[in-house]
Amino acid sequence: MGTITFLLVLSFLVFFHELGHFLAARYFGVKVHVFSIGFGKQIYSKYWAGTTWQIALIPLGGYVKMKGQDDTNPALTESGDDSYNTKKPWQRIIILFAGPFANFLLAAILYFTIALMGAKTLAPIIGNVSPDSVAFQAGLQKNDEIIRINDLEIKTWDEIGKVITTTEGALQFYIKRDNNLIIKIINPQISDSQNMFNEKIKKRMIGIAPIGEVITLNLSFYDSLIYAYDKTIFASTMIFQGVQKLISGIIPSSEIGGVISIGKIISDASESSIIALLTITALISVNLGILNLLPIPALDGGHIMFNLYEMIMRRKPSEQVFMFLTIMGWIILGSLMLLGIYNDINRIFLNN
């Protein structure tokens, strides 16, 4: 069942990505020969509205084959107003960007759906107070519920951290303890900490940790839109920074995961709850959007780079350079996929 869920989720994400390319291409009058979910041998197809819609044997991706554009033949050129290569560079860039944009849009829709269904988050209730911290000195205790900081109403634990790290000076905490309201003035201190990439950082802290109680957010339609926007931006920033840390060597290459890891994550999420599955699907969708925008010639980002070059230099890259960089791009992608699978297999043996 987990494998079926994985294939359905991946196919759904690929479909949405390729649909972005398809709609943008058709908007600019580019003929689309094939809309494929999967690679390799065709196992199902239907010709409709001038396009062959197909499902292929290897369900680990997909493609839109446009007139005048073919990744398997980078030097391909075709004449006519309905050809991709006769469009202006800015139009081609929009067609290329539409795929990753569709992934970001899908993630926002999924996060919005999660918000309407009842997003889960940590309650703003203290579980631990570090000895000798400013919170301990102020008299904060376990089971204290933080209901307001200064003039901002607090509903989630994440909001506490945001207020502490983004404001200056002392803060006025409104604490609910045994149905009594207590006010504490606390001046956060700069302390050593770690970010999500295990880097040592310094930030404003007061020395408290959550109790771990999970609550359901009751968000209005407007608040759900804000939630979806914030979550999509946060996921995009997190993944983009992760790629940066990977390139700079802060995150080791052993952390790269492949299709096996993705399949297990999706399978575990599907067994947990529908909200967990939607959350993982949204995160993977953002991941696909970010990764496809990397300036690797075989990806959308690489093709965007070529078109930006043409816009600036008023000429296309030479055919030899274009072919060489595209082949190198495929080698880089293939190497990353093999590394991901190798890491996945290593983790399986280590866990056993």
Results as ranks from 00 to 15, higher is better:
Leu338Glu: 00
Asn287Met: 01
Leu106Asn: 09
Tyr342Val: 10
Asn179Ser: 14
Asn287Phe: 07
Met196Glu: 14
Val163Glu: 09
Thr216Cys: 02
Ile55Tyr: 01
Glu310Gly: 02
Ile274Gly: 06
Phe22Gln: 06
Thr232Lys: 00
Phe324Glu: 00
Ile296Gly: 04
Phe12Glu: 05
Tyr229Asp: 01
Ala269Arg: 04
Phe16Tyr: 10
Ile147Asn: 12
Leu336Gly: 03
Glu18Val: 05
Pro124Thr: 10
Phe22Ile: 00
Pro210Ser: 07
Ile247Val: 12
Asn150Ser: 14
Ala276Arg: 04
Ser273Gly: 03
Thr51Gln: 04
Lys41Ser: 14
Ser133Phe: 05
Arg148Lys: 15
Ser130Phe: 00
Asn187Asp: 15
Tyr44Phe: 15
Ile109Met: 13
Leu299Gln: 03
Pro74Trp: 05
Ile327Ala: 12
Ser267Gln: 10
Val64Arg: 04
Ala98Phe: 07
Ile260Val: 15
Pro295Ser: 09
Ile260Met: 09
Ala98Tyr: 08
Ile345Met: 13
Ala119Gly: 06
Gln69Ser: 11
Ser261Gly: 14
Gly38Asp: 08
Ile147Met: 08
Pro317Val: 13
Asn351Gly: 14
Pro124Cys: 07
Thr166Gln: 04
Val14Ala: 00
Tyr111Gly: 02
Lys245Ala: 02
Asn85Lys: 00
Ser220Gly: 12
Ile256Asn: 02
Gly80Pro: 11
Asn73Thr: 10
Leu333Arg: 08
Lys67Ser: 11
Pro188His: 09
Arg314Leu: 10
Val286Arg: 05
Asn150Ile: 02
Pro131Arg: 03
Ala98Val: 08
Ile175Tyr: 07
Gly80Asp: 10
Pro252Asn: 10
Phe15Ala: 15
Trp90Arg: 08
Tyr44Val: 12
